[in-house]
Write a protein that binds this DNA or RNA. Structure first.
Lengths: 333, 333
DNA sequence: CTGAAAGCGCTAACAA
DNA sequence: TTGTTAGCGCTTTCAG
C-alpha cells in the first residue's frame, strides 16, 4: 500500500505539501496540487484512516449501538438518525451489543472509536455508559432514563402510552382487560405496564393475575400467551399487548381458535410497526414518534459536539392509532 | 485521557513493560503486572483503539455493508454473519452505502477500516469493490456476480427461484401469470424475471406486457401495481410478485377490491420474510437460504483471512414454501 | 525479565 | 507557497 510519503517522493514535493494538497488546503499552488494528485493516482494511493484518526483524535463518525444488528429494528428511528448524520457530514456506523462485556459495542465505547454514540441497547450496563461518556464523547440514551454530565436522554413516554391504550379500552366499555407483557426486565415493558395499572386503578378496576401473561416481546410469545389464555376457559373482553409483535401473534392465536377480533375480543398493540396496518384486522395500536426521536437524538449529539449546551432529558409522547382490532365491549357492565 | 505512558510512570516501570503487562504477555512478573494493572485502574486508563490499529494494521473487525441501515433487513442473514464473527473473535460493524461516492461505506472500504467486508449493497459500484479488495482485505459479495482475485461470490440462484415460482403456478393450471417486478436496475429482479420467462416459454406461454408491472420492491409499489391491474379490467389468474413486500401490498389491494385470494387470483411472493406466514391468506413464496448464505459468507471471509484458499463463487438454491395464497386455477384451459 | 528506541501513516505548527 | 519536524499512543524489536 502506497503511503503519503511515496506520493510526496514521486511528486517531488515535501511530505506536508502532499498532505496539504491531498486534503485540499488552499495554500498549495494548483500546479503543485495537480502534480501530487497525479502521483497519488499513479500509485493508487489511499489515505490510511487510522493514522488520520490517531492524529486528529476525531473520527467524524457517530456510533449507533443496537442490541442486535439483525433487528427487529426501529427502522424509522434509524433512518432519521442516518439522515441527520449525513446532513451534518458525519458517518454513522452501527454495532451490536451482543456478546456481553466484550461486545463490539462496549469495545467501541471504551476505545472511543467514534465521536459520540446513540444507545438503543438495554443490555449495556449503566456504568459502562457513565464511564465512557465525556466531554469528547457525548452519548444519547434512548432506552432508559439515565443522567450524568455527558449523557442526554431522549425517551418516549411509555407510561402515558400504556395508560392511553388501556384507557381507550375502558372507555369502550371493557372492564376485563388483559395485559400481555414483554420481557420482565425491560424498562419499556415496565412503563407500559404502569400505565396500564394506572388506567385500571382510575376506573376502579382491579388487576387480575390470570390476565397478566408474558410474551417476551416476540410474536411467538404473544401467540403462546394468547393460546394459554384461550385454554384457561374465560376470555377477557380486551387485551393490551405490550407490543405489536406480540399482538400479531395473538391475532393469529385467536383466529386459529375461531375467536373473532374485535367482535369477541378487542386487541390493542403498541409501537405501530409497519406491519400493523396490514394484519387482519388492522391493528389498533400506540404509535411512538420514532422518526422524531431519532432525529432529535442525532441533532442533540451534534449540538453537544459543537459545544452548545442542551437539556439533559427529553420526553416525547405517543399517539393512538385507531384501526379495527379494538371495538366496543359487547358484555353488559 | 490517560495514556499508557502515564500508567507506566505511575507504576514505575518502562513503557514497554506496561504494554506487555496490559496485554497479558507472559514475560512480566506477576508482581509487576499487578502493579501496572493497579496503576491503570487508578488512572482509569483505556487503550486507544486507533493507535493499536495503526500499529498492528489489523482491526479484528469485519464490515457489513448495507444499502440502508434502516432495513428492510435480511435479518436472518445478518444474524448468522454476526454469530460467525463472534465465534471467530471478530467484531462486526455495519455501515450504510447511502450517500453515493462519499458514503460511509465507500470510505470504509477505501480506508480499510476493517479486515474484510461483506457486501449487500447494490449501489456500490463494481470498480470500488475491485479496487479496494486485496490480499489484506478480502470481500465477499452477495448482491451480484463479480469476480476478481480477492473477491468471493456468495449468491442465491434467483433465476431458479423465479422459475420455480412460475412453474408452480403453471402446474396448477394458471396460464395467465403476471409478474410484478422490483427495481428495474436490480440484479435480483432481473434474475427472478428471467426465471419467470423461462418457465413461461417452457410451457409455451407468451409474456403479456399488460401483465408486467413494476412495484419497486416495496409494499406500496405492490399495492399500486395491483390496483392498476385491477383497474385494467381483466385480471390474470395468478400473479408472481418479485418479493414478499410487494405481494403483501398486492394482497391488501385485492382485499380492498373484494377479490379473493386464492379463489379469484393466486398470489406468490419471493423471499419468505417472517411476515409472510402471518398475512391473510398466508403467503406462498420462495424461501432464500439466508442464514446459510450469511454464515457461508462469514466463514469464507475468515478462511481467506487465515490464508486458506477458497472457491471463487458459491451458488445456493431456493426452496418453495407452499402456503395458502396460491391455488389451482379455476378457469378452463 | 525490563528498558530504550524505532517507527506505524498522518497532520499541523513552525520555519524558510 | 513549500519544507522540516515533532509528535498522536501504541507495539515490538533489540540490548541489557
Amino acid at each position: 500500500m502506497a503511503t503519503i510519503k511515496d506520493v510526496a517522493k514521486l511528486a517531488g514535493v515535501a511530505l506536508s505539501t502532499a498532505s496539504y494538497a491531498l486534503s485540499g488546503d488552499s495554500r498549495v499552488s494548483s500546479k503543485t496540487r495537480s502534480k501530487v494528485l497525479e502521483a497519488a493516482r499513479q500509485l493508487n494511493y489511499r489515505k490510511n484512516g487510522f493514522a488520520m484518526d490517531l492524529k486528529r483524535s476525531r473520527t467524524n463518525t457517530i456510533a449507533l449501538i443496537l442490541t442486535d444488528l439483525s433487528g427487529p429494528y426501529y427502522s424509522e428511528l434509524i433512518r432519521s438518525v442516518q439522515e441527520v448524520a449525513l446532513t451534518n457530514g458525519y458517518d454513522l456506523i452501527a454495532c451490536s451489543s451482543m456478546g456481553g462485556r466484550d461486545s463490539t459495542a462496549v469495545k467501541f465505547l471504551r476505545e472511543k472509536r467514534a465521536d459520540g454514540a446513540i444507545i438503543l441497547a438495554p443490555n449495556i450496563r449503566d456504568e459502562v455508559l457513565i464511564e465512557t461518556s465525556g466531554p469528547q464523547f457525548p452519548i444519547v440514551i434512548m432506552d432508559r432514563p439515565l443522567c450524568s454530565e455527558y449523557l442526554v436522554n431522549v425517551l418516549v413516554d411509555g407510561e402515558q402510552g400504556g395508560y392511553t391504550a388501556t384507557r381507550y379500552l375502558i372507555e369502550n366499555g371493557h372492564r376485563q382487560v388483559a395485559y400481555i407483557s414483554g420481557s420482565a426486565d425491560s424498562y419499556d415493558n415496565h412503563l407500559r405496564y404502569q400505565g396500564y395499572l394506572r388506567a385500571l386503578a382510575e376506573a376502579g378496576l382491579e388487576e387480575q393475575s390470570k390476565w397478566r401473561l408474558s410474551g417476551n416481546f416476540v410474536r411467538e410469545g404473544g401467540y403462546n400467551a394468547t393460546k394459554m389464555m384461550i385454554m384457561q376457559g374465560t376470555l377477557p373482553s380486551a387485551v393490551f399487548y405490550g407490543n405489536d409483535e406480540m399482538a400479531i401473534g395473538g391475532l393469529k392465536a385467536f383466529e386459529e381458535s375461531g375467536i373473532s377480533v374485535p367482535n369477541d375480543v378487542s386487541v390493542i398493540g403498541y409501537d405501530d410497526i409497519q406491519l400493523a396496518e396490514y394484519v387482519n384486522p388492522p391493528l389498533t395500536t400506540i404509535r411512538q414518534p420514532k422518526s422524531e426521536a431519532g432525529s432529535l437524538a442525532a441533532h442533540l449529539l451534534f449540538q453537544i459536539l459543537s459545544g452548545e449546551s442542551v437539556k439533559q432529558s427529553y420526553m416525547l409522547t405517543t399517539e393512538m392509532m385507531e384501526r379495527a382490532s379494538a371495538g366496543k365491549s359487547k358484555v353488559e357492565n
